[in-house]
């Protein structure tokens, strides 16, 4: 028996690879088709948030083996990256003040995860980590030493996620993706009113039996328009001029009120 195993040993890796290819074949056969209700969100003066509907179909060619289990879909919306400092208050001489801090570069300013089931049930931990699916699997690249993650680091990360969630900028809907048909899914990504503007990425991941099958992504632009854009550009490009305009406006308003309310 031992001899047999030894004789087979050079063949074994190849055999395993073959199995992998065979198992993997349907992976290549599944294709994702994704459509968005809109590719641009325009922020106007009456903007109070919106929703973006994501529709998708799972295409299978004839060779795909039909299986009993269902598909799992995870839809992720990521905002433009930003550098964020998380600070913790500590008591010093009876006063609470910011002391310890962690800086996280390259974090998504907005992050929404809609899935057909809680992400932890959709795929294994390494896969979730690889695609950064779910709050727990976000990659925190600290500018501080990263050799050992202390419990303190964990509490800073948790605080970051908690505060982002409270601001409505990190969102998770465990059963947000629904299947109107076996191979058709849909979800609505909620965009809150305080959404940062910029380029967003919508990524759709398809899983079955914890195995990653396919993914697709698209881009959304969230931008201000008209007066809002003009004001923002003016304030950032010509700050002093903009400030001067505000002052003129203020003095004019003050003067006008004085004239209107004049009694004597």
């Amino acid at each position: 028996m031992k001899e047999l195993a030894t004789a087979f040993s050079p063949v074994l890796p190849a055999f395993l690879a073959l199995i992998a290819i065979l198992v993997g074949r349907p992976v290549m056969a599944e294709e994702l088709i994704v459509a968005l209700s809109s590719e641009e969100v325009k922020i106007t003066s009456n903007f109070t948030g919106t929703g973006i509907a994501v529709f998708g179909a799972i295409e299978r060619d004839a060779a795909t083996i039909s299986r009993g289990s269902f598909y799992d879909v995870v839809v992720v919306l990521k905002g433009p990256p930003e550098t964020v400092v998380t600070r913790r208050k500590d008591r010093l001489l009876g006063i609470w003040l910011n002391s310890a801090a962690r800086t996280y570069p390259d974090m998504p300013s907005f992050y929404a995860v809609n899935s057909s089931r809680p992400v932890a049930e959709v795929a294994t931990a390494p896969v979730l980590k690889r695609f950064q699916l779910g709050f727990d699997n976000l990659a925190f690249e600290t500018t501080e030493h990263e050799e050992a993650i202390t419990p303190e680091d964990i509490s800073f990360r948790d605080a970051f996620v908690r505060l982002k969630q409270q601001a409505g900028l990190f969102r998770q809907e465990h059963y947000g993706v629904t299947f109107p048909g076996t191979n058709v899914f849909q979800t609505t990504l909620q965009i809150p009113a305080n959404v940062p503007v910029g380029r967003y990425e919508v990524a759709v991941y398809l899983f079955r039996d914890s195995a990653f099958l396919a993914s697709d992504s698209a881009e959304i632009r969230i931008s201000k328009t008209g007066f809002e854009q003009f004001t923002f550009d003016l304030a950032h490009g010509y700050g002093f001029l903009y400030g001067a305009i505000c002052v003129v406006l203020a003095i004019f308003t003050g003067w006008l009120a004085g004239v209107i309310f004049r009694k004597d």
Binding site: G79, E82, R87, R88, W96, S109, F156, P196
Partner: peptide, 13 residues
């Protein structure tokens, strides 16, 4: 809440 967030730099425009 002991923690607070400050955005230092970002591409959000």
């Amino acid at each position: 809440e002991l923690y607070s967030l400050t955005t230092l730099a970002g591409d959000a425009r």
